[in-house]
Write a protein that binds this DNA or RNA. Structure first.
Lengths: 211, 211
DNA sequence: TTATTATTTAAACATTTGTTTGAAACGGGT
DNA sequence: ACCCGTTTCAAACAAATGTTTAAATAATAA
């Protein structure tokens, strides 16, 4: 864990513990211990436990959102050039693939994805507000694109199905360590790539289901 | 809140607070205050905070599971009688409809459904183990039925898609108070019944998606 | 009634929590 | 060498936590 600066070590430790134990269930003492730092380090470097959470989220989410946004914009601009509306498949792929590929880039990334996956269902405003503002803009872009892709689908139903998709995604994002079944986690059972493809097929079929 | 016994009042208050604020973020003092009971009442009637959580879950989940199981068994026995395999649609309906209809039966039930919906993604074992053992048996029955309904679908993919379905469900179950979009909650925007039908269409399409 | 059990109560318990403090240690520049 | 801003550290802080205790009260049965 050493070899990085104290600030980085705190971010890494917080990422792991907040994801695996939950925000409220993680004490600054166990955090400092894992980071091999002093108890006061969190308050010195970040000001408060809550500010540390915000830093954990922003460190990863800002670049990830950048990727997702350019991928979606790529699909949209290609559609505009060729005068053919974008496909729902391409749009969902542009949104989902970077997310789950990023998840596999490191164990820290995996923890992080699990953390924000769970945040979607979080009752506590502390955690939820921290990332909701960061994810809403790109969400709007995706929604706008899907409206173009599926103009015949009523707005209300599109919104509902998008919400369903976010639910499915958030569950997959959290699923790293445990699945509902007692069997070994699905993320182990399936090749990571196959899992992404399965998820895409599932949500695309749901999105395009007959009314 | 009064008019019920202390034990019942504690269960009701815990249901509400655990669902809305989270288990670890609920103190026995605020709980006692909402229940208009003494601080020591929880430990007197239930032994510990954790045992109270268990009681909260069991009070609702046992009867709900009973309903779900008989509904599924009804579908399966009808299939056996007519010698026609059960349909995935009927099986999913038997599992999902009671859950979401129960959710609408009272505000306490709504809190409870939100609580167990979130538990599916819970990192903390305390909460998750409490209800996992209660839900696994019926989950196995559903899985067995779906295997009959979709014999051509590889086992691994069926499992994956069932996991996706649980993710979608858990999100809908939590969604009562907040949706991901800033717009008013979808459970308000859509008629409750329409939401159930939309959810069923979505997950059925996903389950039957081409490989 | 009295005796006995069940429940409620206020107070105290020992831990744990996030945060603050002030001095010590470090590091680079002059 | 010196100074100075940054970082670390052990210690203490007040507040909040779940739990226990023992006395008071209520309810029940004989």
């Amino acid at each position: 864990m050493a070899q990085h600066s104290t600030k980085i070590r705190l971010l890494n430790a917080a990422e792991q513990l907040f994801a695996r134990e939950g925000f409220h269930n993680t004490s600054l003492r166990s955090l400092a211990s894992l980071a091999e730092a002093n108890l006061a380090a969190t308050n010195y470097h970040f000001g408060s436990k809550e500010a540390l959470l915000k830093a954990v989220i922003e460190r990863r989410l800002l670049p990830l959102n950048q990727i997702r946004e350019t991928e979606i914009e790529k699909v949209l601009s290609q559609a505009r050039e060729s005068n053919i509306p974008p496909t729902a498949d391409a749009l969902l792929r542009a949104f989902i693939e970077p997310t789950l590929e990023f998840r596999n880039s490191s164990s820290g990334a995996r923890d992080f994805i699990s953390l924000i996956g769970r945040s979607l269902n979080e009752p506590d405003e502390t955690v939820r507000n921290c990332f909701l503002s960061l994810i809403l803009p790109i969400f709007q872009v995706l929604l706008e694109g899907l409206r173009e892709a599926l103009p015949q689908l009523p707005q209300k139903i599109l919104l509902t199905r998008l919400e369903f998709i976010m639910g499915t995604m958030s569950h997959v994002m959290c699923m790293s360590s445990h699945s509902i079944l007692n069997s070994p986690s699905l993320t182990e059972a399936l090749e990571q790539n196959e899992l992404i493809q399965q998820l895409l097929k599932f949500v695309l079929a749901g999105l395009e289901a007959p009314e």
